[in-house]
Amino acid sequence: MSVTVRAYEHGAGTALIRDALKPLSRGAHASAYVAVGDVIDTDDSDVFLKGHGTQVIGDRLVATQCGAVTRTDKLISVRPPRERYVARAGDVVVGRIVEIAGKRWKVDLQSQQQGSLLLSAVHLPGGVQRRRNAEDELAMRSVFREGDLVSAEVQQVYHDGGVHLHTRSLKFGKLEQGQLVVVHPGLVKRQRSHFISFEPLGVDAILGLNGLIWVGPHLPRGEDGAPAAAGGGGGAAAAAPEREVRERAVRVAAAVRALAALHLQVFPSSITEAYQLSLEKGVAIKDVPQPAFLKLLAEHEAARRHNVMAAEAGGF
């Protein structure tokens, strides 16, 4: 039961990763960064497409956000390090129910507007999609209530910014047996699947593109994606996971926090590497997001990138 008192360092995580990566910065990937109000180089071309984070003033392209300039053909955009999540159709997200209004649930996605989950977009008990009736509406709270966390897919984004979600596939729905880790949305990139199973560990994770990440012990699922234990409302009946499994799940969550503290991207292999490294170095779970391990993780990442760059160079 030791107690630690130490000096606070602002931006310690950023400093650690920056120092670790400094030797690598002379690579070909050095990006052009701009601050708000900077004029962006358009290569003396009159023809360019103004992308995200830019505005046209007179005949110049000016940044409206700080970030990295990206050029695709004639489209010039600025990609900022941080931004509230912007939904796109097909995104897998994790959100919290904040309100039940009429025939819909309002979901906080930590985005510009709350998402709407219509009663008609939810998979209800009974298996087959059936017409929603009055009973369903009153019983909405028994399906999802205020405060519940759910996983869902973005069905559509309307031109006024309204976001409609659905949980029609059985793999979506109320989240149970786990914990939430919140990271910046920019750290979660689109990938093939956002439902991750760390098989040998018996730990599952859902990587929401809005930066909300759910980590918990593995829940067996049927072929249709539904949780095999109980449909829809495990609740108090769900058996508590064994201590070993819980420790592994909590360590995975801690690994995610460590990656986020260093502004590293969160995806299955980076989580696994951080997890393995913490075990290798004999770090207690509670010490994983702390400066001592963060330093090791930053150095590990620098070494990994160095190897990747060397391999690429060797390929020529």
Partner: peptide, 19 residues
């Protein structure tokens, strides 16, 4: 900005993200 983004850039080619 540089400090935050240097970390996010993947040496393996970088994600397009919201680009």
């Amino acid at each position: 900005t540089r400090a935050l983004m240097a970390a996010g850039e993947d040496a393996g080619g970088g994600g397009g993200g919201g680009g």
